[in-house]
Structures are given as structure tokens and as C-alpha cells.
Amino acid sequence: MTCATNPSVKQQFPNLDDSNHSETSPRSPKYNCIAWAAGDSSRFWWPEYAYWPPDVSTDLTLDSFIAAFQTLGYELCDSPEYEPNFEKIAIYTKSGRPTHAARQLPKGLWTSKLGRYVDIEHSIDALDGPAYGTIEAYMKRPVS
């Protein structure tokens, strides 16, 4: 079963369909989307009750999340367009609060961990909706 045929997923992500995503992992509660965007699949990242980079504010704000990704070498940028030799991430917010992060893949598609559910590859607008809100910031760093 793909995500788009799961009724619960369909309710949370109305833009998701078979043409704009594919599942790339089994379900796992061990890491979340912020960890996955940061390249860490061993633990949950969140400002409270989980791992958070040392010396970064634990306020639940976009600025805290930007600061967390800055510890990994990311800097703010304007667009989601694929740029050779750069990795990009997108940070989603809902009602001003961060909810999700996605990471761009070398071919231009994006990869996301859906909470404690599965990893997917998806188009940039596939996850807009009631669960995550919309993308509020893009960041990029040179590919090492």
C-alpha cells in the first residue's frame, strides 16, 4: 500500500497522490523528520524532550530551527530550485510554529520522514496541508 492509499495519510496530506511520491522506508518511531533532514536516523530531534544541538535555543520558533540547521553548515536561501553541489532543506510551519523539515535529493526531488511513519520521496508541494502547514524557509549548504 502506498501512502496515498492510506485513508489517514490522505486526510492529513490532501496533495499527496501516487504521481508525486513514493515510499522509501518502513515505519520507524526511532527518528523524525528533523533528524532525517539533518541526516541522522538514530534519534528524534526536537527542541524539548528529544535531542537538540547544544547551545541552540529550545524555543519552539522558526529561528531556533534555522539555528539548529546552521550548526550543520546550512544557511538561509531563497528558492527550492536544485543547485548542483548544494544540499537544501525546507522548513514547514503551521500557525507560526515549526512542524516539519524536508531534505532535497541530488536529482531535485525531496525526501521526508512523516513523523513516526515512513520515509518518502516527494515533490516540493506534496506535503502542504493541515498536518504541516506550508514551507516557511529554505536553507542550503555546499555538498562536502
Binding site: 489517514s8 528533523i34 524539548e48 524532550y49 519552539l60 512542524t99 523539515a101 512523516l114 513523523g115 498536518a131
Partner: peptide
């Protein structure tokens, strides 16, 4: 059912 897709621990708990 309601929180499986959420990453926000605040929303989860």
C-alpha cells in the same frame, strides 16, 4: 492514528 504523521513532540504529547 492521529499523531503518527507528526514530528512535533509537543503535538504528540
Amino acid at each position: 492514528r492521529d499523531t503518527e504523521f507528526l514530528s512535533s513532540i509537543h503535538e504528540i504529547i
